[in-house]
């Protein structure tokens, strides 16, 4: 459930990233191609970093529970704004009842990406952590009070975000510290589950950025350990792709990353933004992808996630 997109690189129109292609994120809200039995109609959110903005380090945050393909405000903003970094997310929720202990509450407070006060690090999630209601009680002791007090919604993701921020040594972390905080957070979660005998399938594809660096995970805790009533959308290992090159350009719907092996722009996405995936690479399962600017070039690394 959910689809997300991160971009870091040369200045690009938000409209090109969000709308233009034949499998764009906005289209993925009603027609995801790599997720069966579910749509992502529970809202849209994005954070954007742009040299156009007065404070270039602070992201513009936009969230709306309106359907993104009907949202003229979003379309208008996307048409006018260009940026160098974007994290966008369309939220998917079970249609009825609770799934994996998640309450299907549609509200602006539950929309991704999450960003707390005093930090530029934002986080979105494609997945679901099972039995989160049980884990929340235990997590309180692992979350710093200043972050705990900012949790406003009912999602598993916001708690995971607070846990992640609590593991960072400062409000302006470097890439290594961010990667370590992700590993630490997942390990805490894994240990808490183990202690409570929770061993059911929990996809945790995270998307994290501060406008200068990106981290994404393709990770499922207890993959293949299903629970009765699991949704079709959760049966497969959640997908994650990236495309890398000089710039994301094209005409009409035929967009692709061009200019490789020059590496100055990257898109990391739950699924390719084009029906033809030829110019996209799958992030391997059980992996963490990390990207950082090194001058005009992007430095990309992939780590195994084994917790």
């Amino acid at each position: 459930m959910c689809r997300a997109l991160m971009y870091l690189g040369q200045t690009v129109s938000l409209y090109d990233l969000l709308y233009k292609t034949d499998a764009s994120l906005v289209k993925q809200s009603y027609d995801p191609r790599y997720m069966h039995g579910m749509q992502n109609l529970a809202g849209f959110g994005m954070s954007v970093w742009s040299q156009q903005f007065s404070d270039v380090e602070k992201p513009l945050l936009f969230k709306s529970i309106a359907l993104p393909f009907y949202d003229k405000n979003l379309e208008s903003i996307a048409n006018k704004v260009k940026g160098e970094c974007l994290l966008a997310h369309v939220r998917g929720m079970p249609y009825e009842g609770d799934q994996l202990g998640m309450r299907n509450v549609i509200s602006q407070q539950n929309l991704h990406p999450f960003v707390f006060e005093d930090t530029n690090v934002v986080l979105a999630h494609n997945g679901a952590i099972s039995n989160m209601d049980i884990l929340k009680t235990a997590l309180i002791s692992e979350i710093k009070p200043q972050y705990f007090s900012q949790i406003k919604g009912s999602t598993d993701t916001e708690w995971l975000y607070a846990l992640f921020l609590s593991r960072l040594p400062s409000l302006t972390p470097n890439l290594k510290e961010m990667i370590q905080a992700v590993f630490d957070s997942l390990e805490i979660l894994r240990n808490m589950r183990n202690e409570r005998g929770i061993s059911s399938f929990s996809p945790i594809n995270l998307f994290i950025t501060d406008g200068q660096r990106l981290i994404a995970t393709r990770y499922v805790m207890d993959y293949g350990h299903y629970v009765p009533g699991i949704m079709d959308a959760h049966l497969a290992y959640h997908s994650l792709w990236y495309t890398l090159g000089k710039a994301y350009t094209g005409a009409g719907e035929h967009y692709e990353m061009r200019g490789y092996p020059e590496k100055s722009s990257i898109i990391v996405s739950s699924e390719p933004l084009t029906i033809d995936p030829s110019s996209w690479i799958k992030v391997p399962e059980y992996s963490l992808l990390a990207v950082e600017r090194d001058g005009d070039t992007l430095d990309l690394q992939i780590f195994d996630v084994d917790l």
Binding site: N194, E195, S199, H225, P284, S287, Q301, I302, D304, D306
Partner: peptide, 19 residues
Amino acid sequence: NHQHSWSEPTVMKRAFVSE
């Protein structure tokens, strides 16, 4: 290559009794 460098796994068995 560096771009696709997947680090060596450090696989550990879990401490609890498996389902």
